[in-house]
C-alpha cells in the first residue's frame, strides 16, 4: 500500500491510493495532504482507482481533510471508486459530502 502525490499543470494536487486506506495508514495520507495544503495547494483530487478497500477510519480521515481544505478556501474531490466503495459512500451518506467523479480526468475537468 502506498500513496502518490502529483501536481498537474493547473496546480491541482492528485493523490493516488494504492491498496487500502485504513486505520494503519490514514495518518500517512493525512500528513501528505496537509503538507500540500501548507505548500499552498487549494484543489485536491484523491484517486481510488487502485484502492481495494477503505475502512471507517479511512472515511473519517477524508471527512477531516475535506473540512480542513474547505476552511482554507480549497476543494477536495474524489474519483475512481469501484462499485463496492461507491456503495459504502452512499450507505454512510458521505456521497452527499463529497464531489465524486468516475475518473481522475472528470474530476480535473470539474474544477
Amino acid at each position: 500500500m502506498s500513496f502518490s502525490v502529483k501536481k498537474d499543470k493547473h496546480g491541482v494536487v492528485v493523490v493516488g491510493v494504492d491498496g487500502q486506506l485504513i486505520v494503519g495508514n490514514r495518518q500517512e495520507l493525512k500528513q501528505k495532504v496537509l503538507d500540500a495544503v501548507d505548500g499552498g495547494g487549494k484543489k485536491f483530487v484523491i484517486d481510488f482507482t487502485k484502492t481495494g478497500y477503505i475502512d471507517s477510519s479511512g472515511l473519517g480521515v477524508l471527512v477531516s481533510l475535506s473540512k480542513k481544505i474547505r476552511e482554507q478556501g480549497g476543494d477536495l474531490r474524489l474519483c475512481g471508486l469501484n462499485e463496492d466503495l461507491q456503495t459504502l459512500f452512499e450507505l454512510t451518506k458521505l456521497d452527499t459530502l463529497f464531489a465524486i467523479t468516475r475518473t481522475p480526468e472528470e474530476a480535473l475537468t470539474a474544477f
Partner: peptide
C-alpha cells in the same frame, strides 16, 4: 447513527454502522 445530519462531519463513529452493512 453516524448518518444523522449532526454526525455526518464527525471523523469517527462509523465502524459499527459499516460493519452491519
Amino acid at each position: 447513527d453516524p448518518t444523522r445530519p449532526d454526525r455526518l462531519e464527525c471523523e469517527d463513529g462509523r465502524g459499527l454502522f459499516v460493519l452491519r452493512h
